[in-house]
């Protein structure tokens, strides 16, 4: 987990040469946002800290892929994959259900901006732009779902191999 995080940070700082202050602000913000949502859905005190780090990992992955011109969909899918895998890891380590970690960490990825634009365009009467925004929302949600699906697949195969050997 820590190695993964360090690796992500390295890649990230390579893309953002000279903008280190912004990266630190993004990391602090994603940590706080994840913990805040964790408090709203009442996850156990013990899980709060690790949950915050899972959220940071997901958001950093998102930013890394976006900075490398990967596109919004790929960025969301990769971030969801990272969140899924690290929350499975945390669930195993702390012996708690997995949803404690992936629900709060997912919150920064929710397509709030696009959904907002869709609602706004519908309200103004700009239906065509609104529908294009809605399609974007649906595709981002699908990308996040794919990321989770792949993470579960990877984890299941991995544990099956471990049990066999």
């Amino acid at each position: 987990m820590l190695v993964q995080l360090a690796w992500a940070l390295l890649l990230f700082s390579a893309f953002y040469e000279g903008r280190k202050r912004m990266i630190i602000i993004q990391i602090i913000c994603s940590y706080l946002a994840t913990i805040g949502f964790g408090i709203i859905v009442n996850i156990p005190h013990k899980a709060l800290n690790s949950c915050g780090w899972v959220g940071v990992l997901g958001w950093v992955m998102y930013l890394v892929v976006k900075a490398a011109d990967g596109g919004t969909m790929l960025a969301n899918a990769v971030a969801a994959l990272a969140i899924g895998l690290s929350s499975i890891f945390m669930a195993r380590r702390l012996k708690m259900p997995m949803i404690l970690f992936n629900i709060p960490s997912l919150v920064p990825l929710v397509p709030g901006g696009q959904a907002y634009k869709a609602v706004r365009n519908f309200a103004i009467g700009n239906d065509l732009a609104a529908i294009s925004n809605l399609v974007q929302v649906a595709m981002i949600a699908g990308a996040i779902a794919m990321g989770f699906f792949v993470s579960e697949l990877v984890a299941r195969t991995y544990f099956r191999i471990i049990i066999k050997h």
Partner: peptide, 11 residues
């Protein structure tokens, strides 16, 4: 917590 979530996500 709600205030923190709002502000940090906005940033």
């Amino acid at each position: 917590a709600a205030v923190v979530v709002s502000v940090t996500l906005m940033i």
